[in-house]
Write a protein that binds this DNA or RNA. Structure first.
Lengths: 221, 221
DNA sequence: CGCGGAATTGAGGCTCATCAAGGAGTGTGG
DNA sequence: CCACACTCCTTGATGAGCCTCAATTCCGCG
């Protein structure tokens, strides 16, 4: 979930933060080291965030530690938008990450102000909802191979570099996004590799080239 | 997803359709027989619906027929609210159902009008998003028994009758909501029954009394 | 009263999780 | 510059949980 507004935007708006930022004090930037928390679930939501550089995961935990990542946020993405006054996810930097953040007032206050702000919030929330709806179908009804294929397609669509796809997140993060274990994710990627659908670039397993997007889409079903 | 606004409402608004209905032509009622489609996925979204009586499922399908139900809608619930101009789910009456529906104009048109309409839409969308986020955690990370327990708790919370809970949907519907098969749902309910956590009322398997809500909540984890 | 869909229950199989070992890349200190 | 440690990923063996297939019972409904 959480929309990426400055690319592939359905709406002709340039940034999605236009009205939001007009409304507020000058935004500040901040840097988070990898694996540090940006905000925690149930914490008061004071800011709205936009990623300048890096990557963020937002997730929920069960009491015994099981984790479900609801979304990955990439450069340009806005996250931390809440309607109530508390965050519904924990957000962590996956790698060293720079974010711009804007102080938000209470929704009641915002709603009383510029109507375009509310429209921006509605737009963002709808994008997030749409992503969550698609992800429910994936989590509830797709096989492990379909899940991994769908994940790669999503990351490919969202990545700026046309050729090589650089995954900032670990296999464990991917697994917790797809409702799998890291071993199953690894096996699925190996299958796609052996099938000639993707290739690794260099020595790392995080730089991937999609050799055959058509067959990948077929696998994703 | 899809909020129930006239009960357990966080917001002091009475109905949630106040501003929306003020804005429009007088609403009409319509009746749907059980198992008939109210609207289909990707169809143009012309109306907003509120259930007077009955129950509705909204779902997505994969090409091979696998189904994921995203939400059940009960009396009072509003559904079919879209930001874009097409529905993202198929909606079907689970039992004979009466709905009130309001013609909606394009969002652009609405947004240009009363700001409170946009605020109502934002509120509804946020409720739906919140439900979807919780449901992702359930689908991705909970066991079958935890899923079924969580489902019963949700239905208990939403049901009007204090004592006996009447489930309008079949085991298959429940299964497709929880990402399971109907047999697994049936087995989980049997376990809860044998554990003395719930009881059946009368001859049917759809009328359930929760005998021990505390232990049920523990099972849901 | 009898038919047909719905639910339960059982047996067996498959997918994915768990447990475990080893390799490859990266960073640190000598 | 190399050895060592640590993390991350892969791969294999095994097993558990859920699915599939099937039979039976139960209920609602004509």
């Amino acid at each position: 979930m959480f929309a990426r507004v400055n690319r592939n935007s359905i709406r002709p708006t340039t940034s999605g933060l236009t009205a939001l930022s007009r409304e507020r004090v000058p935004s500040s930037e901040f840097h988070y080291r990898r694996d540090t928390e940006i905000f925690g679930e149930a914490e008061p939501a004071e800011f709205i965030y936009q990623i300048i550089e890096g990557a963020v995961r937002s997730y929920k935990l069960l009491s015994d530690g099981r984790r479900q990542i609801g979304a990955f946020h990439l450069p340009g993405d806005i996250f931390g938008v809440e309607n109530g006054n508390v965050h519904r996810f924990t957000a962590e930097a996956i790698v060293d990450t720079t974010v711009r953040f804007l102080k938000r007032q209470g929704v009641e206050h915002v709603a009383a102000g510029d109507a375009s702000v509310v429209r921006d919030l509605l737009f963002l929330t709808t994008k997030n909802l749409q992503h969550a709806e698609d992800h429910m179908l994936l989590l509830g009804r797709k096989t492990s191979l379909e899940k991994v294929a769908a994940f790669l397609i999503e990351m490919d669509r969202r990545s700026t570099a046309a050729e090589v796809m650089e995954l900032p997140m670990s296999r464990r993060d991917i697994a917790d996004y797809l409702g799998l274990t890291l071993e199953t994710v690894s096996r699925a990627i190996s299958i796609l590799h052996n099938e000639g659908i993707l290739n690794f670039v260099g020595q790392t397993q995080r730089r991937i080239v999609l050799v055959n997007r058509y067959r990948l889409a077929q696998v994703a079903a």
